[in-house]
Amino acid sequence: MVSLGEFSRVVSSIYAAAITPVHWEVALRDIRRVLGSEQAGLFVDDPSWSVGNSTLPGEAAASYAQYYHRFDHVFAAVEHGLVGDIRTGTELMPLVRRSELHDWLRPLGIDDGLFVRLTDGARPVCLLTGAARGDEAFGTRDRIRLTGELVGHLQQALRAREQLAALADRTGELAAALEVIRHGVGIVAADHLMIDHNSAAERILRREDGLALRSGRITATTAHAEEKLHCALAQALGAGLCAVRRGTTLTCVRPSGRRPYIVHVLPSYRSSGEQPRRPMALVLIVDPEDKPVPPAVLLRKLYGLTRAEAEIAIRVTDGAHLKDISQELSISLPTVRTHLQHAFDKTGTHRQADLVHLLLALSP
């Protein structure tokens, strides 16, 4: 008979595994202990049966995935059963007594046990609690009852793990998307909390030159700019008296004397599973001092520029004079002008200002 304290510890370890998957082995060891089994494991059919997490030795799990899974008529029967239905070794083990799988099971002390399909769908997860054959069948009334009480917690933990994994994927995708933008981008929730931002925004906020992050909130470092930013965020979030959400563009003075940031604050949303969409504000910070230069490879790929033409176009974008380019590249001034004219022709521009405008627009 399992005490309430022991049962509580097992349940706690199951939910700990949902949050931190490396703890599944601990949870399965706890399940094995309270049931008195030799082994415990989660088996996954994706696209053939393999050991997900278990107390099995690593080499045993590998050999099962590589070879012995093809003879596993036990889990084939469990898969075709109902979700949550507890099947006994007395019922199922005869299916594999004379197969090669029995050679894999015997050294592991599995000749009896309890088996449960925990999840539905095309990628089912099943629980194994395996034991050696004894005078009494492993599937006693107490063990079946205890397993039944654990099934609901295991199913909830697996659902939580799946949702957390999906959330991590979405967060990773969002972070990757933000990183391709060269300007500072942040996502702001209620109370001006910055819940996500890219590395460009991180650099800007770390300088505390006009904008900063204080207690997780985006703020301006001057009183006048802070008032404008506060109002813009309220309008984007629909907070206070701002019933209609709308975007705002403002400038933010920098104490360093550099050109002010241009800050676009736009309404946005973030969904969380089945929860209602939450109002968010997308903050785009443009630093006029940042003058990106498109890579030569991009110019050559998009417009067919030669290496020399692309190099000269980039230097012009950076503000270099043609005479200086001639000296730096050790080519004559007429040659520089010829390459530049070819760059004009290939990009459909007619003067240096047009070319600079086009090249600056290439960088996201």
Rank of each mutant, 00 (worst) to 15 (best):
T219H: 11
T219F: 03
T219N: 09
T219V: 15
T219Q: 14
A220G: 02
A220R: 01
T221K: 02
T221M: 09
T222Y: 00
T222P: 05
T222C: 01
T222L: 00
A223D: 12
A223H: 08
A223I: 04
A223L: 08
H224Y: 04
H224S: 10
H224F: 06
A225Q: 10
A225E: 13
A225W: 07
A225T: 13
E226V: 02
E226Q: 14
E226K: 01
E226Y: 03
E227T: 11
E227W: 06
E227F: 04
E227V: 07
K228E: 15
K228D: 15
K228P: 11
K228H: 15
K228A: 10
L229Y: 10
L229V: 04
L229Q: 12
L229C: 09
L229R: 01
C231T: 13
C231Y: 11
A232K: 10
A232Q: 13
A232G: 12
L233S: 03
L233I: 10
L233T: 09
L233N: 12
A234T: 09
A234E: 15
A234R: 10
A234Y: 07
A234I: 09
Q235C: 03
Q235F: 01
Q235R: 14
A236P: 15
A236R: 06
A236S: 10
G238I: 05
G238W: 06
G238T: 14
G238M: 00
G238C: 05
G238R: 00
G240W: 05
G240L: 01
G240R: 03
G240T: 11
L241H: 14
L241T: 14
L241Y: 04
C242T: 12
C242V: 08
C242G: 00
C242L: 04
C242F: 13
A243T: 14
A243L: 14
A243F: 12
V244N: 08
V244Y: 09
V244R: 09
V244W: 09
R245P: 09
R245S: 01
R246E: 15
G247A: 10
G247I: 06
G247M: 07
T248S: 11
T248F: 03
T249H: 12
L250G: 08
L250E: 12
L250N: 10
L250F: 05
L250M: 13
T251H: 13
T251S: 15
C252I: 14
C252S: 09
C252K: 04
V253M: 07
V253R: 08
V253E: 15
R254H: 12
R254W: 07
R254K: 09
R254N: 06
R254A: 00
R254I: 00
R254S: 03
P255Y: 00
P255R: 03
P255A: 01
P255D: 08
S256H: 04
S256L: 02
S256D: 14
S256E: 09
R258Y: 00
R258T: 05
R259E: 15
P260N: 08
P260Q: 06
P260H: 01
P260R: 05
P260A: 00
Y261N: 07
Y261M: 03
I262Q: 14
V263R: 09
V263K: 09
H264G: 13
H264F: 11
H264Q: 15
V265K: 06
V265M: 05
V265D: 06
L266C: 05
L266Q: 13
P267N: 07
P267M: 03
P267F: 06
